[in-house]
Design a protein around this nucleic acid. Structure first.
Lengths: 107, 107
DNA sequence: TTGTTCTATATTTTATCACTAACTATTATA
DNA sequence: TATAATAGTTAGTGATAAAATATAGAACAA
């Protein structure tokens, strides 16, 4: 799996997951791992950044299956950020697609 | 413009441009700059990597408007690499799109 | 009961690598 | 001489990878 492609896009994936419901770190890693390859510690760094920037808030919930789970909850600021990132991503993807298409179809 | 999104995708854009026709560095920078924001030196680094990996070959052509232009030509290896990268990119983009869609539509 | 091991979970540290910013250098032309 | 067209380099930044460490609970053996 191409490492570089994930730069920035992983953040959008995390934000999008949290848009739907609060999740804890391990749960997010697990869920995203089913769709793409990600290293174990990666999401924690992303989540830390998101929290430092007040895009998410956290709370602990005791678990019967291991250490307490740290849940991440999207703030209003985080929700807006997700929308902005999503738009930027989709714009960018479209631009790249156009460049790809031009080089093949029109030849 | 989100810097991170470009990681890896710029390479695909350059390869795609070269798929259509040989280009010189300044020309590529100029063309891509009309669609997205890129720093002046960026493409030269990408082109150097591509050449080091034998994805492109170069030749000089004298110009009446400045210093000689260094043209980049995609090799067979480069053409295959473009196809592979393109597929990886499109797969990845689709995965991200699914994750985004799930969090919004199904809520 | 005690100790061991496994799983779930969180966190940290070091390294890598692509892009940015900001340069230098060269040729032709006005 | 200044400007535009062109090539190239260097230091820095920031996101992800890889590989640890840490802890709580469950299962199991001695």
């Amino acid at each position: 799996m191409n490492v570089q492609f994930k730069k920035g896009a992983l953040e959008l994936c995390v934000l999008s997951k949290l848009l739907r419901k609060d999740c804890y770190g391990y749960e997010l890693t697990d869920a995203l791992s089913q769709r793409m390859v990600i290293a174990t510690g990666t999401l924690y760094l992303i989540l830390k950044r998101l929290r430092d920037d007040a895009y998410v808030e956290t709370y602990l919930v005791e678990s019967a299956e291991g250490p307490a789970r740290k849940y991440y909850h999207l703030t209003e600021k985080g929700r807006k950020y997700q929308m902005k990132l999503k738009e930027e991503w989709m714009d960018f993807v479209q631009t790249v697609q156009e460049i790809i298409d031009e080089s093949t179809s029109t030849r």
